[in-house]
Design a protein around this nucleic acid. Structure first.
Lengths: 340, 340
DNA sequence: GAATTTTATGCCAGCGCTGGCAATTTTCTT
DNA sequence: AAGAAAATTGCCAGCGCTGGCATAAAATTC
């Protein structure tokens, strides 16, 4: 058992070359002879040598570490993003450092910058809703930190961003519901202050109007993206003498809450009331009735974002700056049906 | 705008001391005078100086990086663990590098060791079911890697482990069901080969027998911890002419599948059939009827594990070696009721 | 007040690696 | 075959920090 880990010196000595040459092999530099390269590779293998990332980073100002900054409002979403990011990291030899933050903290920007500097991260991916914070983005840019933002809505700066067009997604949902004959529709919105809340609402609203249905003010309830708020909002909506025939909740948690509330009132879903959600979370497919919802290409977004980030880190800026937009898709299940 | 980041030299120059003294302040060494320390701290503040972790690590053989190794069978569980680990990391100045692995890979051990070495991790936390792999644990120990395992069952080596006693948890569930008057109970087990499968089953079985009820062979179905397998197993169990009055599924996903299957057969839960799960996942509280289940102290386990790990890293081995056992608790909701 | 202990600070080497350039060898020209 | 160009390799400095020891200053002892 090797009591000490092999270093580049050991490899060089055994290969009878200078460490500089070994370094070239490690870094896939072309300026190395065939035979030499093969010999060195063999020795690296035999020795089970792994270059010391810290030393590499110190010398080359690289850490091969990416960061992920997020608040924690939706664990499931984050999980998918993390998976996507990791899959690309794996392919590219990077590791991922995860870093939850409080989006409401006064020192968010400072703390995020410090995080990146402290760990010498090569770049960071910022998840919604923190990604909507332009101060942060500005501070990172100022500190020459590579970053990519994931967002559900267009941001002030269209660069370094991967977005899913949720406006068009909720529009599609509106059209789908109208197509089923619904016109009086209840809408459970997200909390004020998040861009996604407005974006989703507007997309839905506009599409509805385009088809001659108006989203009445009393048919809009403000939730908080939580199960409980979904229950309350649904109760409110359904207490209206002129009850909606369908309810769209702007996330699945609230939609499930709405289903629970409606069932408690003795309503059958989807016979007496159609309900749809947004996220296609694990809940959507497990609940009875299975929930009609909207699926964002989360994993794909995460992958794209990571590819962009690594491109920027490697100085291949070509397409790194351009924003990327992906479209969510409608998933129809059993919680919605035509009015007939 | 600082074009270059401040280094320890800058701080030392401004404070008119040697970098060694600044280093002492950074590392909270006691051997520094009051006044000097205060002055240096002030300058660090003013300069917004952050020590370079790579350089620190290279010199001190420390990275302040912890790793988390896991396969991905249960995203929700992992999420909770990650949160717990991170909360301790935050308090202790460590960052967390996440590293999913394929538990069935031939090169799992090699890859894990390489991961730790490559990134110079100070330690790793290993999640189930990978934590059950003793080869891995052995290899890590051999390489002088600090690690702590999270497990649901006693492992061969009782050291470096935080376990939740699931045997007693399923025993409690069995007693609870017996207490409700159930005696003919269906059991949906996990896949073969995982220790938790056996542990949960035995705990349940033994407790049942202690109360004079036997778990008949035809009342045991083998699932795969998935929703679909829960459906299938429940169908099988319920197809038995002498139907069970209660079904315990060894995780929530399967329990939800069982509920779905039972409802499809026209059974009312809990009136015609009691169903219980294991995990207290998000599903359990969202589904109708709300699921009776077992909650493991996941976050607490994760925290304990991390504290242990950091203690080991810091050389405070005192209690670092002793294993820790935590007990899950029964969460009774609406999916179970007394017979009669 | 000299000797001793304690406290505070500085110096040097080196952690393991890469960048830039120089040196060497090989290959190609003419 | 001599000179030029290209391919290969090596040397040195230094990335930013800490460990170990030496030194200097202050506090304590007798």
């Amino acid at each position: 058992m090797l009591s000490k880990k092999a270093t580049i010196d050991d490899v060089a000595r055994l290969a009878d070359v200078s460490i500089r040459t070994v370094s070239r092999v490690i870094n896939d530099s072309p300026r190395v002879g065939q035979a030499t390269r093969a010999k060195i590779k063999q020795i690296i293998e035999d020795l089970n040598y792994h270059p010391n990332t810290q030393a590499r980073g110190l010398a080359a100002r690289r850490s091969y570490l990416l960061g992920m900054i997020y608040d924690n409002p939706d664990a499931l979403y984050i999980n998918d993003v993390q998976r996507g990011v990791l899959s690309v990291c794996r392919e590219s030899g990077y590791e991922l450092v995860v870093h939850p933050c409080d989006m409401h903290s006064d020192t968010l920007t400072e703390e995020a910058v410090s995080f990146v500097n402290r760990s010498q991260l090569d770049g960071v991916i910022i998840l919604p809703p923190i990604s909507e914070n332009n101060d942060l983005a500005g501070a990172l840019a100022k500190n020459n930190v590579n970053y990519v933002r994931l967002a559900s809505v267009p941001l002030d700066k269209a660069e370094h961003v991967v977005i899913s067009n949720e406006r068009s997604a909720t529009a599609a949902m509106a059209e789908y519901l109208v197509g089923l004959g619904h016109c009086r529709i209840g809408y459970i919105a997200g909390p004020k202050g998040m861009k996604s809340t407005r974006e989703r609402l507007e997309g839905f609203c506009d599409a509805l109007e385009k088809h001659g249905c108006k989203l009445e003010t009393e048919m809009i309830a403000r939730g908080a993206y939580t199960f409980e708020s979904g229950i309350e909002c649904a109760r409110m909506l359904l207490a209206n003498p002129n009850r909606p025939t369908a309810i769209f909740a702007s996330n699945d948690e609230m939609a499930v809450g709405a289903i629970t509330a409606a069932q408690e009132m003795g309503l059958k879903i989807p016979d007496d009331l159609s309900i749809a959600g947004f996220d296609d979370s694990i809940l959507a497919s497990r609940i009875t009735p299975r929930l009609t919802t909207i699926r964002r290409p989360v994993m794909q977004m995460a992958r794209k974002a990571t590819v962009k980030l690594i491109a920027a880190v490697d100085g291949r800026e070509e397409d790194a700056c351009r924003g990327v937009t992906l479209v969510p898709s409608l998933v129809t299940r059993d919680s919605t049906r035509s009015l007939d």
